[in-house]
């Protein structure tokens, strides 16, 4: 019993230290006032000379987020990009996962390994590689021109299309793996039973395979959606200069503007946006199936 408690306690302690504590620090900064100093924010309260405590905490940073439409636009854009990127990843990933799950067992591990293979190279390097590929004189344009599809190089890099491409490419394995796990354990005789009762292959898919793989769809979608919302590297490298996604805004506030309170407020707001879908997912998972 004690061994089990230790095994559980250690990772929780780790999370407490390196997630919860930083979270509260960020939360605290978001309510403080900015200043030109080191660190660039004021404490939440001060004890004056005559021993009175003066509260200096303020919600100004949050008010600023709401007042300036720039932030709402950045949030909206991030959620929209993440949503459609997740949808595209699902549409590409589902047939792949189904194909792998339905292939013969010796093939499965090989195909899964191919899905995981990109992880062997650094994420940053892979996104940089896309940058090179998508350039005006890059391999993609060269190939399209050689095939006679286009006469002039296309402007692919620094567009929203490049952001979608980058996100879908980078996060596709996170979609495929939970989908595969859900599809692989489906009992093949369920499909046969449905076919036996007169369901065409399409009906079998819609009535049996799809609803039974729903936990995999939700898990995969969250694994793509959540990091995509806060994605910084991909829009920074592949997106246009005006592609203000929330991850870039956050970075700019912290490092370019050195406005830590506003940056922290941006981070907290983003966290709230992301906690909601996770909680919905949890509720779905806990829904009594028996």
């Amino acid at each position: 019993m004690r061994g089990r408690a230790t095994v559980i306690a250690v990772p929780y302690l780790w999370l407490l230290l390196f997630f919860l504590v930083p979270f509260f620090i960020v939360l605290k900064i978001s309510f403080s006032e900015g200043t030109l100093a080191q660190p660039p924010y004021l404490p939440l309260y001060e004890v004056t000379d005559n021993g009175e405590m003066e509260i200096t905490a303020t919600a100004d940073s949050y008010a600023f987020l709401i007042e300036d439409p720039f932030y709402a636009e950045a949030y909206g854009r991030s959620l929209r990009v993440a949503f459609f990127a997740t949808l595209i990843a699902l549409l590409i990933g589902y047939p792949m996962a189904l194909g792998i799950a339905r292939s013969k067992p010796p093939w499965r591990n090989f195909l899964l390994m191919l899905v995981i293979l990109p992880f062997w190279t650094s994420f940053l390097i892979r996104v940089y590689a896309w940058k090179v590929l998508l350039q005006g004189n890059g391999a993609v344009n060269a190939a399209l021109m050689a095939l006679g599809v286009i006469d002039q190089p296309l402007q692919i890099l620094y567009t929203d299309g490049a952001i979608y491409l980058g996100i879908v490419y980078s996060y596709l394995p996170f979609m495929i793996l939970p989908l595969y796990a859900a599809l692989e354990r489906l009992d093949a005789s369920l499909d046969e039973a449905a076919a036996d009762l007169g369901a065409s292959p399409l009906r079998v898919f819609l009535a049996i395979t799809l609803p039974l793989s729903m936990p995999g769809i939700l898990a995969g979608s969250l694994l793509v959606f959540i990091p995509a919302v806060g994605e910084f590297v991909i829009p920074e490298l592949l997106g246009g200069p005006d592609a203000a996604m929330i991850g870039r805004v956050l970075w700019n506030e912290f490092f370019a503007n050195r406005d830590w309170p506003v940056a922290s407020a941006v981070a907290i707001a983003m966290l709230l946006f992301l906690v909601i879908p996770i909680m919905l997912f949890q509720r779905y998972q806990e829904r009594p199936t028996r």
């Binding site: 005789s189 369920l190 046969e192 039973a193 449905a194 036996d196 009535a207 049996i208 039974l212 199936t289």
Partner: peptide
């Protein structure tokens, strides 16, 4: 129509 050994009832 077939009755499967595992019954293959649709769990959902």
């Amino acid at each position: 129509n077939m009755m499967f050994q595992s019954y293959a009832l649709f769990p959902h």
